[in-house]
């Protein structure tokens, strides 16, 4: 065979490759380049303006000795566990209920998904009022006669992060429900019939047959929820701006505050590098299992 019959790999599908150049450049320069730049400068003592004056790991030592950072991490963990567990459980339950061929399914679906159309800022402001002790839920219940009713999460340091999680769940579960519903609809009707013929109760069918079959949907959902957890910022700003005191601070807010309010870029970069690291710790083993393992088979 002559060479002309088999064009080089490089020029196959040339149009598509040319078209993707801008995106590749963006990814390389903005994402990879920006990340590398941030990590590099996190080892400097840059203040208001970036300067290449290396101080080793000093910014990291200071970061892990700062109570506010530790509280932020703790809050992120609590918030993460709550939103992961509850949005998966509630989202799946709602989807399973909607899947029972009920009447007005469209209406319910719209109602559940609607909060997702709101930004975190709006969600935060709405829930700030709902959870306000004088005007919100507590005020309403008290005015109905239960004067000792106490529900005041946003002004109580020890439970404020749960108050924030409520708002996040209200906003986010609708989307999870929709993803789950799509997954449920993708299951072949025959599997249900076979399970029924074998006399397997419905909850067992869900738990041991349907859910394992929905693995790809669960993984997509997990990635969406997890990325939402790490970057939570605007919800906190709108609801409590980190208060009372520093009880509801989150890492993203620490990064912003130290980069811009405190004019200490080095410290902010160190904190954002730690955030990146924590994402890597979760993503890399998962990606390895998910993509690395399959090739060998």
């Amino acid at each position: 065979m002559s060479k002309s019959e088999r064009p080089s790999q490089l020029f196959r599908n040339l149009n598509a490759k040319v078209a993707s150049i801008p995106m590749i450049l963006t990814a390389m320069v903005v994402f990879v380049g920006g990340t590398a730049w941030t990590v590099l400068y996190s080892f400097t003592n840059s203040k208001l303006l970036p300067r290449l004056n290396f101080v080793g790991l000093e910014q990291y030592y200071r970061l892990w000795a700062t109570p506010r950072w530790l509280i932020s991490i703790e809050n992120l963990l609590i918030y993460g566990v709550i939103s992961l567990v509850f949005s998966l459980v509630i989202g799946f339950l709602l989807a399973a209920l909607l899947d029972q061929k009920i009447r007005f399914e469209d209406t319910f679906r719209t109602i559940f998904l609607y909060p997702f159309a709101l930004s975190f800022i709006v969600t935060g402001l709405v829930w700030q009022w709902l959870l306000n002790p004088d005007f919100g839920v507590q005020g309403v219940v008290r005015s109905l006669g239960w004067t000792s009713f106490d529900f005041n999460p946003l002004y109580n340091s020890s439970i404020v992060i749960y108050g924030i999680s409520i708002a996040a769940l209200w906003q986010g579960t609708g989307l999870i429900m929709c993803l789950m519903l799509a997954g449920l609809r993708g299951i072949d009707e025959d599997i249900w019939k076979a399970a029924r013929v074998d006399g397997i109760p419905m909850w067992k069918t869900y738990l041991f047959i349907i859910i394992p079959m929905m693995r790809p949907v669960f993984i997509t959902t997990l990635v969406i929820i997890a990325s939402g957890i790490v970057k939570v910022y605007d919800l906190v700003v709108a609801q409590t701006s980190g208060g009372p005191g520093i009880a509801s601070e989150v890492p993203a807010k620490y990064v912003y505050d130290y980069m811009f309010f405190a004019q200490n870029l080095g410290q902010g970069f160190a904190a954002s590098t730690m955030m990146l690291l924590s994402v890597m710790i979760v993503i890399v083993p998962w990606a390895y299992l998910e993509f690395g393992g399959r090739k060998r088979v």
């Binding site: 005191g245 130290y258 004019q263 200490n264």
Partner: peptide, 19 residues
């Protein structure tokens, strides 16, 4: 004081007053 020290001080006292 630099803004950095001021911010650390703010974090401390906002926590102190709220807790």
């Amino acid at each position: 004081l630099s803004q950095d020290s001021q911010k650390q001080k703010e974090d401390l006292f906002s926590e102190f007053f709220a807790k």
